[in-house]
Design a protein around this nucleic acid. Structure first.
Lengths: 198, 198
DNA sequence: TTATATTAACTAATGACATTAGTTTTTGCA
DNA sequence: TGCAAAAACTAATGTCATTAGTTAATATAA
């Protein structure tokens, strides 16, 4: 059945991740990948649907790993602590895997079933973490979007060297998360005051 | 001195912006640009230093426009109102010019003098707006980073369709900014309480 | 008015890609 | 032992960016 198996998907993905993280996502080409794997580039078509297929697989792989570290970060925790650890895990992942993180957000096809499934699971995870803040109705979902915006924004700008200031990045990040949490508490307070105006 | 002037930098930039905003930044190639301008691609080298030069100019152009709309948004305003308008102007720009906004953040050379100058001016603008919160020392700069993270994160995810949820984006954004502002007020309160603990 | 220098835009050529078609080769199983 | 499946290959095509060298238009000086 199966003839010379030199390549397989895991090996291809690992090599692609290595290139992405060290040289940048744009450098992940079928040519560079084939060279690294000591193979001719058309051979890759037996495992992956061209460059765009590779990028899809890379995106899915990255989302899986990201969801995993986020999940690990919140088990056994709740409230502010859980959010803080979640945030730390998120930026740590982006720092450790800049290229893979990038791939995560440039899925050629956002309608891809796998991508949607993983995105959904990630949202669920964060919703559960934010449940502690007793946000009503859609507020929890809006808060998920907000938290994700802030995490992604920070990671993205950090990666692009978008912060020209000579200022400790970890301090900036901690303050940002703390400010968001303080705001969340305040919003909760307000909505409760509104619902129950002594 | 000057022979047949069919092209000039403004025309080139305008065409590039059009392609970027309608088809995406990746579609801005010397080939597509030349076709749109009815010229052969090597001709572009007389005005721009190759593809990377074009991207640099595009980034600078985008930063200039972004700084301009941000500046217009805050004149005559202060405090929360100024921050809210600043935020609205930021996401409105990203929505109106998705490709150009993208170019803004993928400057091939973040060390480029023009890019650094504009980035500096933008930081200055936001610092002035945040002065109202009387943040001490570096806190103001950290807050600038935070605000920028959140604005960029939201815009970027919105563009990439990263929000799978069927939820009003404008509401999400307003809540995010409000949460940040509430947090900022709370942080200010805390630092004052600490400095002057009755 | 004419000649020249300047320089924009051109053609031609090269090399890096992705991709497709068609061929070779390995290997599991009958 | 032989055959079918499929992995990896070679060859070819087309799209890019980029460089070298050529042509041609025009502003200015004579």
């Amino acid at each position: 059945m199966s003839p010379r198996i030199g390549l397989d998907l895991p090996a291809i993905l690992q090599a692609a991740v290595e290139i992405a993280d060290t040289r940048g996502l744009e450098e992940v080409t079928l040519a560079s990948l084939a060279q690294k794997l000591d193979v001719r580039s058309p051979s890759l078509y037996n495992h992956v649907n061209g460059l765009s297929g590779l990028r899809s697989k890379l995106a899915v792989h990255g989302l899986e790993k990201l969801l995993h570290v986020m999940t690990q970060a919140v088990v056994g925790r709740s409230g502010d602590e859980a959010v803080r650890e979640l945030g730390k895990a998120y930026v740590a992942f982006a720092r450790a895997h800049p290229g893979l993180y990038d791939a995560t957000l440039r899925a050629p096809d956002p309608q891809d079933a796998e991508v949607r499934r993983l995105a959904g699971e990630t949202v669920d995870l964060v919703v559960r973490v934010l449940r502690a803040y007793e946000l009503k109705d859609d507020a929890a979902l809006h808060a998920v979007r907000g938290l994700r915006s802030l995490l992604h924004g920070f990671s993205s700008l950090e990666q692009r060297g978008g912060f020209g200031l000579p200022l400790d990045l970890d301090v900036s990040f901690r303050l940002l998360v703390d400010t968001f949490l303080a705001g969340l508490h305040e919003m909760k307070r307000r909505s409760q005051a509104e619902a129950n105006p002594n």
